[in-house]
Nucleic acid binder design. Sequence first.
RNA 1: GGCGUCGUAGCUCAGCUGGUAGAGCAGAGGACUGAAAAUCCUUGUGUCACUGGUUCAAUUCCAGUCGAUGCCA
Length: 300
Amino acid sequence: MTIDDRLLVVIAGPTAVGKTSTAIALAQHFNTEIISADSRQFFREMSIGTAAPSMQELSLVKHHLVHHLSILDGYNVSRFETDALALMESLFHQHSVIIMVGGSGLYINAVCHGIDELPDPDPEIRRQLKEIFTTQGIAALQQELTLLDPEYAEKVDMSNPARLLRALEICRATGISYSTLRTNKPRHRNFRILKLGLELPRDVLYQRINNRVDAMMMAGLRDEALSLYPCRHLNALNTVGYKELFDYCEGLTSLDHAVEKIKIHSRRYAKRQLTWFKKDSEYTWFKPDEIDQIKIKVLA
RNA sequence: GGCGUCGUAGCUCAGCUGGUAGAGCAGAGGACUGAAAAUCCUUGUGUCACUGGUUCAAUUCCAGUCGAUGCCA
């Protein structure tokens, strides 16, 4: 089997654009399976709020990497890359086309182009750095980074604590500067990749987002969030649709206000996704209902 | 009907004793290598309700009109 016999079709796009049903239609047509690239649908406790595929949808096409983790499990892009590649290796034995669908751009990139091998985060180092951040502010992080990795300090967004924390945690853990470890070397993949983006006019997309949030509430999102409230500090739950309802649990907002916030935050999330995917010129863009055109593109 | 308060950016509102206006949110754009549905950056000209008046100059003072709201009848 050569590289030409293996094709990964990536279906990306903003939240609520209609990725799931398009992917299912495509997978049925090519009689193949779907790998999810959605950093929140991994978690089985989060079903309603992540708009995970329904039981009915799951029964139509075999899905992978959906609900395969607990929110208690630690997970990250690198592990996703490993898991997805291993999965594809086995799936390609039976299928020449595999569908990957999701909205997590970083995760999709990791599978398509690889991600540098860096040590897993050390909880203790991370804790120490966070403490510095909370007690001494971002300036302390900026200073240390300038000292340990002046090259990265030059180009990183120095006002973004997440970036600084991550770089420092690597510097501290390895004793080497983060930028020297960040080679950004493209990985060789033994399959072809076709990137398809789904989009809709902004006002239509926003209407779909609003409607879907209402539908989630009807489906019991409030109770799902309430049941996860004790775990609210887990990273997996730092997620649109949950954190707003945690505020409601704590009496910080009304339910209506929380729902309104979910809609707003979902729209902003969609915009960030579009910014991410749009700058990648490898994507060909379609409307979610242009199934026939998409099929032709895949066969081309 | 009388008296009072209010009418400023899509929304909520700031604008001290007159020199044509500014925040938050929304919206828009962008960044992004193990937190990524995360995290962060940039971005505010609008008949200051309308019509007159006073003034060198009015969003700001005065009168009237319209609208909103409260109290009294």
